[in-house]
Amino acid sequence: MTIQQVVFAVLAVAVIGAALFVVTTGNLFRGALMLILVFFGMAGFYVLLDNGLFAVAQVMIYIGAISILIIFAVMLTRGMQAMIPRNAQATGAAVAAAALFVAIFLAFGPLRLTVDFSAVPVLSALFRTETARTLGDVPWQYANQPVPETYIADFGRALVNINQYLLPFLLIAFLVDAVLAGAVHLARQRKPAELIAERREIAEEEAEEAAALRGAASPEPLPQGAMAATTTQDH
């Protein structure tokens, strides 16, 4: 067993354990922390694949940004510590995950289950192949040579090459710009009149919702104080 295999085994056990914890725990904050451990493990896999750039990018983006966003969302949810979260999708998710695992095992495991791709129009279009008859035989582009020394520069050039990934790259840049503009718009300094109008709108919406909820039980209108109470709440 080489050192790479040992490291892979350790990482795999850590990642699978942490991932199981994430989906089974009732404590959302701890779940988020374990999700970070999963992300770290994935970065470790990138290191094993000799790609330091993606490993570091994984840490930077998934741990430095997305995890913090998740943790913030968890923290800002009211009654987090007293809550017992329930998940109605647990069974469905478990079945889907098990089915996916079985499919992967059948295709790539020792059985190498055969699927006639050319017979299924969607698959033949998707993989652009008539010859592949086994899911495991799909001509995936494996890295069968070591990562070149200049992979960072190559990666950068591929992003700005019009024949490669220029369009998605520009689309992402556009998306990020739009998000930034939206954030600035949401956080801008508002005039008092605007704020009052906004609050009134929210209060009216809430009153309508409450009325709709109540409407099923009793058709009588809301008491006078209800609207005032909702306006002074957390908005």
Partner: peptide, 25 residues
Amino acid sequence: DLNVGVFYLLAIGSGSIIAILMAGW
């Protein structure tokens, strides 16, 4: 000598944010 050394430093910096959130929560 990582060829992404500077990037690594920045990524490591974001890890301490997680630790501070852990302490605060």
